[in-house]
Amino acid sequence: MRFGSWEYLVEVQRRTNADEKYRELAKDEHDSYTLVLEPEPAKGVERRIVVGFRVDGGEISEIWEGERPTDFTLSGPYGVWVDILVGRLGANAAFVMRKLKIRGNFLKLLKGADSTQRWLEILRTIPTEFEGVYARDNLPGREA
């Protein structure tokens, strides 16, 4: 599945909501998120991708493409998102090192480190195709 596509989002929602461990870690979370993947034309990533989702009590209750006002907006170059997803860069390290622009309650985001980490583990199980030079990092995926 193409990273950031609607098909990918649907699979993210399905696998996340099937994960008991994530549900437990994120049971107190009720927040909406916008993720902005900025283009890198020099590396073959031509278009910006903007997706969003809402977490309610450990489940992704809604997904969407495009922008909405949300509790958190996280934006950064496509390659940074790839680095985070494949595990080369920790999510909290990306936040603190300003690899991503964070708009929203920073402390709340950091406090959700455990659920974020588990969520990334779930995402790594999805067969994922990246754009441009990042195709070298494509994830084969496996059943969660």
Partner: peptide, 12 residues
Amino acid sequence: DPLAENLYIRLD
């Protein structure tokens, strides 16, 4: 319109 738009994205 802050109820319909993501201000961070617009400002960026």
